[in-house]
Design a protein around this nucleic acid. Structure first.
Lengths: 187, 187, 187, 187
DNA sequence: CATGAATGAGGGTTCATTCAT
DNA sequence: CATGAATGAACCCTCATTCAT
């Protein structure tokens, strides 16, 4: 049985994500993707209207995942030391993202550089992500509005910033110490 | 005296930086740069061996500048409330970087994606930058080694992360509140 | 009774004519036509063997219509001043054809360029058209054979030529003055 | 000695004109032109910015030629029977244009269909052509303004219309009789 | 009857790079 | 030193056509 239409779209998306993760957006051609899937370029265009279309779907999928992950972290932290856990699990995530982090950076660069509609989409997800975080912080820790706001911006920034450093492989990032430091000062 | 070799190289570098800041690396062609400088592509190749060569020099120049700026921030903070000042002046920098921030992101993306030797160079600068920060923190605030380390990673991350958000123009970043929050919790 | 085969062919033809009128032959894809009709490309191929096939049928239909129109003009002119009326009604037609004129030009270009069998078909209709015109001229005005011949060629040319100018929208065509001029010199 | 830059542009233009005359605009690819000249597609783009650019230059060149030709006809007719001569020489031109006529039709179709700036250019040349004709008619034959206007429109139309018929090769066009007819009725 | 899926050849265009002059 | 000219590979995209279901 051949893969259904939906399956084919999924297959293409997976292959595209993999290639882009490895080589970046500009260094991944539609020919590469088609070859990886084992179809012709024409077929690619049957399923997606353009390269931008593919990138947008990757962005959607990627940003939904990280929004979900963050939300998950925060919501599962209803124990005695919730902040500890949040910080630890976020840092755990970062230290394990290699692949996801790369796509993340590529999408951001693409959004900044070239693709108006992609920027719109990423923007929305980003705001969604941060707002979710802020609301949960406020609800869980009874912080005032301004503090929650500041903290949410900081957490998002720290994630992005650590992703950058981890991708550059500058040096081994001391996630343990960072976690300890954050817990000591924020909890 | 004719405009020296060095001058021409500088002129090219400035024009290239400007164009890349505006349009990104992949969207800036050597033809664009040559036209902006008012020379031919051939002449460009006389001064620089390749596009990558130009990008590497831009990266060098850019990273030297920001390393210097950060060092400056930290060293001039020998007053009564040094941490306050550091944090404030770093955030001031971020909120005003527009152009610098863009090149920064483009260079990082390029380094991650394609350019092995660029990655090496950026790596070195990043480590330099962070180590400087850490040493100053340790010296100035008498923090222990692990804390200084963690804090330096965090500060660098926050800078990069806020740059990302500011470039995406997701929402107005509340630099004031963020500064207050950081000062309250770290000082 | 289900919509008959003939009906579907008609529907397709109408949609295709509309699209080609608006965008030209090369700029109208079979996908466009299929979408306009609300069927799949596969179905299109069930009804017509090829794109050329569709174009030929459009040409047939279009040329039948204008031949009929011209014939009508000439035959209804059995009054006191027949030539006046013919000229006026032909120019009226031209000044109102916008759409028809476009298809006309597109078909002619296509015929000249690429489509051997289309050229044959258009050729036949053109000869039919001109001969009809000539015979009517001869019969109605008792002109000699050579004059009728020349005049029929001229009339056909003037139609095509004015269509060209009207489509190029070069300037407002003074149909009134042209009619007057023709009437003064030919009647 | 290699052909100079100007020569190369001319060479390209000639080859392009030839191919387009034979096969039409849409059926002439840049690859075809490059191959005909014996250069790479890249080189083509070194000399011309786009396919449209090439077409526009062909249009310029073509329309300048026919405007000049018509002007020439009219101006050289300062003898006893000027109208006779004008009509005869115009018809002579038409009966001999085969190649020129094809480009003419292709350019017009292209202008109508697709190319805004090409349409502008052709428009201007067309108006130039007709106005020139009108002025000469008025000056030479002392016709009133409205008549000159009408006649100029008619002459241009007849040219375009006869070109169409001659390209369709419908039947042998009786240029002699047409000339006679026109002379009898207009002179 | 009708379709969704696939194709492959070809389209125009871009660009880093080379090199004779 | 400087350049204009040339290149060729790669890029994204279009589309008439085919065919199993």
């Amino acid at each position: 049985m051949k893969p259904s239409n939906t399956n084919m779209k999924q297959t293409i998306l997976l292959a595209a994500t993999k290639l882009i993760t490895e080589n970046g957006i500009k260094n991944t051609s539609l020919a590469d993707i088609a070859k990886a899937v084992g179809i012709s370029k024409g077929t690619l265009y049957y399923h997606y209207a353009s390269k931008d279309d593919i990138i947008c779907e990757i962005a959607d999928s990627h940003l939904k995942i990280i929004t979900g992950a963050v939300l998950n972290c925060v919501q599962n932290a209803n124990t005695e030391h919730p902040k500890d856990e949040i910080i630890k699990s976020i840092l755990d995530k970062i230290s394990a993202i290699e692949g996801t982090g790369r796509v993340h950076m590529y999408l951001i660069c693409e959004a900044i550089t070239a693709n108006e509609s992609l920027r719109e989409r990423i923007k929305i997800h980003y705001m969604d992500w941060r707002t979710t975080l802020k609301d949960e912080i406020k609800k869980t820790f009874h912080d005032d509005d301004e503090s929650s706001d500041a903290l949410s911006f900081l957490l998002v920034s720290i994630v992005d910033g650590l992703v950058v450093q981890s991708l550059l492989k500058t040096e081994k990032i001391p996630f343990e110490e960072i976690a300890t430091f954050l817990i000591n000062h924020w909890c």
